[in-house]
Design a protein around this nucleic acid. Structure first.
Lengths: 248, 248
DNA sequence: CGCACGTTTGATTGCAGTCAAGCTTTGTGG
DNA sequence: CCACAAAGCTTGACTGCAATCAAACGTGCG
């Protein structure tokens, strides 16, 4: 893990700002936030940002790359809780005697902006706008969690996989609109399985099925969705949710 | 839904205070909170507190009874997100153009304390202690959500059911310690199925299995766990989590 | 080149869903 | 207070989706 403290990029020109935590803060508030950002972190693929059981002291926004959050399970496997993409907020948890219930690991090379939690709290007390921004980010994460539960508990393997692809695709498109409807994709089939409660073998069969139907292609760490509408149908994603993700 | 505005119980003598959102606030802060609580609500079994799609304006703490939070699924069923027991906080979500992603319904007769969200925000800006209390409640809910995902995705039906029973039992014990290790239990087997992604028929078989092993009994809306240690083993609940729930 | 990691294929197994029907409890109205 | 309906629980037979086991194939990297 490498730490950068000099020549940090300006928040106002931040490429992920629009979709990031602090997206809808005004210029003045942005200065407050920037003052909190003490440094940037660089992680290589596979490196951990924190481990389950660590005491939290910093929160982070992903500047570039993908981070996976996971819990260790009873049988020595891992359950992936969520994927944090560019612009997203993670690690925010109050620290007195509490510890992280999950680990955070880099899925690609990752760059993060780092904020001391105690100072965030401090500033949030002074600026309602910041408080609202954080709470609103929290709400989004919570809703994603709810959708995750719903998906994992009630859908077939094909529906789950299609759903996951659609949501990752939509979230990635939001930060970096690509003309060729292709996004960088850092997950192995094992990762997908660990996120959805499936074996990588079954994920493989399902992904092949989706490919054969011409709905998507996925090679060279790059995912293309060819028929969004049909995928939404396959995933049994409801219209409201599809709209929230800007898919229709 | 009935609204009470007079002779509201004092927060300082609140039976659920210790485990409630505002449990670790000092007396002074408690007065601030009480001032926010404009009224109490009374719901009968089956009544809704709010529906998926409603705009949030109030947050609530459960004063007595059980509330179920659920999402409608693509196939017309429902996925239960969580159960809110006495002392818990729900409905807290920022309101500008956003709507609830789930519904809240009374599982028993329920009494709630009601707080305008905008005023909570206001006061949280003035009192860091309140901000921390809310954030800490948020963290707990989030962690429960993570555990839910892990349980639903990776456990067998028997493990999931045992796990759910243990957690509900522990949470209920926390507010009202019962000498006869028996808690009021408001769930049907259908509810359990909807929470865990199982059919009620399969839940039935599993519950019978646990009964036959002498691990628990459940009749007359009353649940007793006879062998906690063994249930923890069956549920594959890890020691750390069991400790968090005060089960060991 | 060879190893490690990820993907692919096939055969078999088993957990939980589905369908169908009977039983028990609860609660409501005559 | 009884009758009957509705809701919830229980049982059995059968089915199917996804796990498991086993092994081969690609591919990128040291």
């Amino acid at each position: 893990m490498q730490t950068l403290t000099k020549n940090l990029p300006k928040c106002q020109q931040c490429p992920v700002r629009a979709s990031a935590l602090f997206g809808h803060l005004n210029t003045e508030m942005l200065d407050v936030v920037r003052a909190l950002r003490t440094h940037q972190l660089v992680l290589e693929v596979g490196e951990h940002l924190y481990h389950q059981g660590d005491s939290p002291s910093k929160a982070y926004t992903v500047y570039e790359g993908w981070v996976v959050l996971y819990k260790n399970t009873h049988d020595g496997e891992r359950q992936i809780i969520r994927f944090a993409l560019a612009g997203e907020f993670l690690g925010y948890k109050l620290g007195n005697n509490t510890v992280y219930d999950h680990s955070a690991q880099a899925l690609s090379d990752v760059k993060l902006c780092s904020f001391p939690i105690s100072e965030i709290i401090n500033e949030a007390g002074k600026h309602t706008a910041l408080l609202l921004a954080i709470q609103s980010m929290n709400d989004t994460t919570m809703e994603r969690c709810h959708s995750s539960i719903t998906s994992i508990a009630n859908k077939t393997a094909e529906q789950k996989v299609a759903y996951l692809f659609l949501t990752l695709y939509a979230r990635e498109q939001e930060v970096r609109a690509t003309e060729d409807n292709c996004i960088p994709f850092y997950l192995t089939q094992e990762d997908i399985g660990d996120a959805l409660g499936l074996t990588s073998i079954h994920v493989n069969r399902v992904v092949q099925g989706l490919r054969r139907k011409g709905l998507l292609s996925c090679k060279n760490r790059c995912l293309s969705l060819h028929k969004i509408e049909e995928l939404i149908e396959v995933a049994k994603m409801d219209r409201f949710e599809a709209q929230q993700f800007n898919l229709i």
